[in-house]
Amino acid sequence: MPERDPAEYRPRPESSTSWAVAAVVAAAVAAGAAWWFWWRLAQAPAPVVAPPPDAAASAPMAEASGPQHPIAAQADAGPLPPLAESDAWVAKALGELLGAERVGRFLLTDGFVRRAVATVDNLPRAQAPARLWPVQPAPQRFLVEGPPGAQAIAPANAARYQAFVAFAEAVPPDAAVALYARLYPLFQAAYEELGYPGKYFNDRLVAVLDHLLAAPAPQGPLAVQLTQVRGEVPSTRPWVRYEFADPQLEALSSGQKMLVRMGPDNARRLKAVLAELRRRVVTGEVARRPAE
């Protein structure tokens, strides 16, 4: 397959006119399948965004002196292909972990490592462009109820995500994190290629997990409204333009908004998966022994 230009994955200035929610921790595979069901708000291609240095939405990254959360190399691990030639190798490894049918259904293996790294890096930001997701877009449309001007997320919307939350819960965490450790040199290479020389992707992953776990869990109906779009051409897909009516919720990052939108029960279950994943990638508990 053609080699992708690394510039596609490099941070660029933020766009304030559109944003999309992508998934979390595809890089660690354990939560990778969960990306598939996250709500898309923007259909047009959007740039990878980079916040200003003092942006509160950006999770902290490690200093260049060394990794805060090092990943231990697996014993007797063979050589990996170069990042630019890794797609087939990674797809095979994902297939062995998740099954070829699930990989084909949920994931985009073309440029998977670069996509996963860019998506994880963008989750604490205002935008996580859909064109860089490592997963297939979710089916069906976002559901709201109520008359115009007084709409809220429909309770039935949560049902769209339940099967995929269950799938994320069923991914074997030990084997998944062991595979992440095995592939880690590729993730690190993609992270440096993205524009972070001297930084460490696993530190960024841990910071992003902490950011997602800190997402609020509001109860009750969540009011939404259509984003105002000025222009003479009417929108033929208005359901992709909903935003929270509550300014505090609307100010959340793309990743935290995803957790809020999927409903409190789905968010609670997915946070449990992410918390267990964080424990493993922080301690290197699984990374120090080969996958079974």
Rank of each mutant, 00 (worst) to 15 (best):
L252G: 01
V240S: 13
K92A: 15
T283D: 15
V260K: 11
A100D: 13
A42H: 02
G111W: 03
P82I: 12
G195H: 03
R230F: 06
Y184C: 02
Y200F: 13
G104N: 12
A181V: 02
L226V: 11
L212W: 04
W133D: 00
A50Q: 14
A72W: 00
A130E: 04
F244D: 03
S18M: 12
P129C: 03
Y196D: 00
P221S: 08
I71N: 00
P67T: 11
G32R: 01
A42E: 09
V103T: 01
Q188N: 07
P51C: 03
A88Q: 08
V21W: 01
P53Q: 09
Y180H: 14
W239V: 10
L205T: 07
R269Y: 10
G99T: 05
A46N: 08
L259G: 01
W38Y: 12
P147G: 05
P47L: 07
A75T: 15
P247Y: 10
G149L: 04
A275W: 07
G263I: 01
L80T: 04
Q225I: 06
W39I: 08
L41Y: 09
A59N: 06
Y196M: 03
R182V: 06
R115Q: 12
P124V: 06
A26I: 07
R160Y: 02
T227N: 05
L186K: 05
A154N: 09
A126S: 14
P185L: 01
L186M: 11
A22L: 06
L98P: 02
A46Y: 01
Q136Y: 12
R289K: 08
F187M: 06
L226Q: 12
P197F: 06
A27D: 09
S65I: 12
L83W: 13
V90D: 03
L143G: 06
L123W: 04
V24Y: 03
E169D: 08
E276C: 07
A138E: 07
L213G: 03
G104C: 07
A150C: 08
Q127E: 15
A175G: 05
R279C: 01
A44H: 13
V240R: 09
A75F: 12
G32M: 02
Q225P: 03
A27Y: 02
W39H: 06
W19E: 09
G195A: 06
P155W: 15
V24P: 04
R280Q: 15
L107S: 00
E14N: 10
A34D: 01
A178C: 14
E250K: 14
W133K: 05
L226A: 13
V286P: 00
R289A: 05
P216C: 14
E276F: 12
Q225C: 05
T119W: 04
A272E: 15
P51N: 04
L213K: 10
A22W: 05
P218F: 03
A20S: 14
Q188P: 02
D121L: 09
E292W: 09
F37V: 10
V240M: 14
G198C: 07
V165A: 07
S86I: 08
L222K: 15
P264C: 13
A33C: 11
A168Q: 01
V120C: 03
I153G: 00
P6K: 10
L41C: 13
N122W: 02
V117I: 08
W19P: 01
A62R: 02
